[in-house]
Design a protein around this nucleic acid. Sequence first.
RNA 1: GGAUGGGUGGUCUAGCUUGGUUAGGAUACCUGUCUCACACACAGGUGGUCGAGAGUUCGAAUCUCUCCCCAUCCA
Length: 788
Amino acid sequence: MSARHDESRAMEPKIQSTSWNPEIEKAILKQWEEQDIYRFTISNKPAFVIDTPPPYPSGRPWHIGAAAHYAQIDMIARTARMNGKNVLFPIGIDRNGLPVEIYTEKKHKVRMRQMDREKFLELCKVALDDLEAEMIQIMKGMGVSGNFKEHYRTDSDDYRALTQLTFIELWNRGLVYLANRPNNYCPDCGTTIADAEIIYNEIPTKLVYMKFKIKETGNEVIIASTRPELLFACQAVIVNPADARYKNLQGSHAILPLFNREVQIRPHRSAKPEFGSGAVMVCSYGDQNDVQVFRELGLKEIVALNDNGLTTDAAGQYAGLRINQARTKVIEELVTSGLIVKEENIMHRTPLCERSKTPIEIIPLHDYYVKQMDFVPQLRELAFKLKFHPDMHRQILLNWLDSIAIDWPVSRRRFYGTEIPIWYCNTCKAPNLPVPGRYHRPWKEKPPFDKCEKCGGSEFTGEDRTFDTWMDSSISPLFITKFGNDQKMFSYAYPTAIRPQAKDIIRTWLHYTMLRCVQLTGKMPWDEAWIMGYGVDEKGEKMSKSKGNVVDPFPVIQKYGADTFRFWSASQANLGYDFRCSEQKIAGSQKFLSKLWNIGRFLSSFEVVEERPELEASDRWMMAELVRLVEECRKGYEEYNFFVPANAIRDFTWNLFAAHYVEMVKGRAYSNENNSAKMSALYTLHRCLSTILLLMAPIAPFISEELWTKIYSKETIHLQPMFREEKADSDVRKYTKQIIDFNSMVWNKKKATIKDGKPLSLKDPIGIPVPDELALFAKDLKEMHNLV
RNA sequence: GGAUGGGUGGUCUAGCUUGGUUAGGAUACCUGUCUCACACACAGGUGGUCGAGAGUUCGAAUCUCUCCCCAUCCA
């Protein structure tokens, strides 16, 4: 009789339940909080500061991709912590700018520009509180090991004071200037709007074919336009350089109908030969393309509309009209004069104001610009020094840097943002800036100075505009390291270790942060950039509210638990690539945690052997495979690519350790003789499980903590070193395939052997010899399969 | 229109940098089994020739070229 049939039993398992219960997570969270194991204070350990992306609580639900993103950032933090780093994991919430304004308008059914600014800001200030609380609750529930105690907001006085401080610093160094440039304008709302507020719609419009005279020849050229009312602002006619019809016209002049003004005919690639007649009139500014052509051809603008959305004096007899009125009158006049060849109804992709649905106009406006063109070459060089995870995403930044054509416009005619800290002298109009330090609101406060530094005037008007929100976001590494506030902290923590972020905001957040930090500190803000892909739906398409394919992470985490969600995230999202979100996959991750839990349950019934004894052949083989696993995980963790360890661990644990090794050594493990063969098995079993738990700790912190503290130590797993010295002879790994094949062969034979109308059970004896090349493992294999 | 990434069994995915035994895994599906950690399990099985075409090579999912399709970002 072999040991497997023996009545002798190992001790009772310390773990009773046969499945991982996510409810346990709550208790573990409480322990972590009580023990305060994730605190950060300046020490002689190396700092590892994570420049975390402050999420924006702009609506419900929080994007499941963003939650997965945060789970992975936490894995970075835990990895660094286990590797002996002093980790600062700040928790910030972004609450500035347009989305909160729109949210507030909807929530309270108000219009920002039709109510008192102060009252509106008060509504904005608390509008996101509920959503923020919910978001933080999700983060905590996910086991995010961040600094929740000192969580910050980008709309706090402290944060805004720092944004203003950095602006004043740039101003003093001559890196800010005022310029008059074309900008989006909604004639209905009477204000400039940001690109983000524009929607595009195909709307029907008339394409009008007009006759222009050629000055040089007296011939006519037909020009088609959807904007005849802007005729008076036309400054050029362009034709495609490859268009044979107009080759001979390039360089000559066209005479505008009705206005009799001559303009140049010039080649430009944006003129599409197949659209209209192929000759296009360029007006300042009919659309974004006109803006581009004006810039490229160096044309002088004619301001067509004033701030009230009415045509300017430049329109002559059509001055002072609204766009539609002007359009009607101009077309009438053209028809009367026989200058129209035909009118065509077409669908035109038109930019509209998101709220009024009015077509936007482009008019020149004065705005503040931060210089960036001068820094592009330097940023380009630094981009090569920055370590990108994955490396391929550096290209997105490089492409962006190469395409930058203008400096950064930073002033916005919005309300809920950091105020531009400028007061203008009423006498000489000179801008006066305050001494940096506190948070300034020029639109409602008196200036913190008495006299204009230029003319000595004493009456001032405060600037009423705010900054582009990227002005705030781009100083996150400075804020979290207490730049301009705590020099000791700053020199300890800056430059930070790593910037984790999604790939879609490389051209904004990553770029602007580099720009600003290099301008202000002369140093790169981080050593590494970690770029995650996007969470997309099952079909691989981006989630959006309009498509209705958004997945809410909250019920998913409620149902499956944080660790399942985290393991899913790690095993599904290969670093830098988009990953699909489906509940089926998440449920699949749960199965692995259950498997791991049961391995823990099984091993918890055996004494922990910590001293390494002389190992039996099977145990030496398993240790060699374990070392291989550790090496693979190490590589993944070095890249912060959790996809690698998650899948490697699952494969090893399930398909090798549990399926083959555990079955092979059960006989020895259950043996009631405390001989060296048993000790060798117990040592190896526990060494494997404890190693698996250490490797799993950053990914699934709850279940690894629970099993670790139940079986191995009272100390938390999260402050253990992840990697331990391990010796193994990699040569034994050559048996792996043979062992698997042999086991499979035996199982197949048992399955095919029918006894009493049923196939043999796996425990039934069978007469199969162990092949010579597996002689080393013969004893364990015989025991495992009950070979006779 | 430009850029980036991708197209591998029903679905998802590894492999492609450094070309070479029956293309690995997950999931779904079918069949059987409650075998002393686990039925959220175990065992067995069906299913792909790697987007299309051409080329290089003794040999290509893996290299080169052309084309097609998808996703995302920018215009």
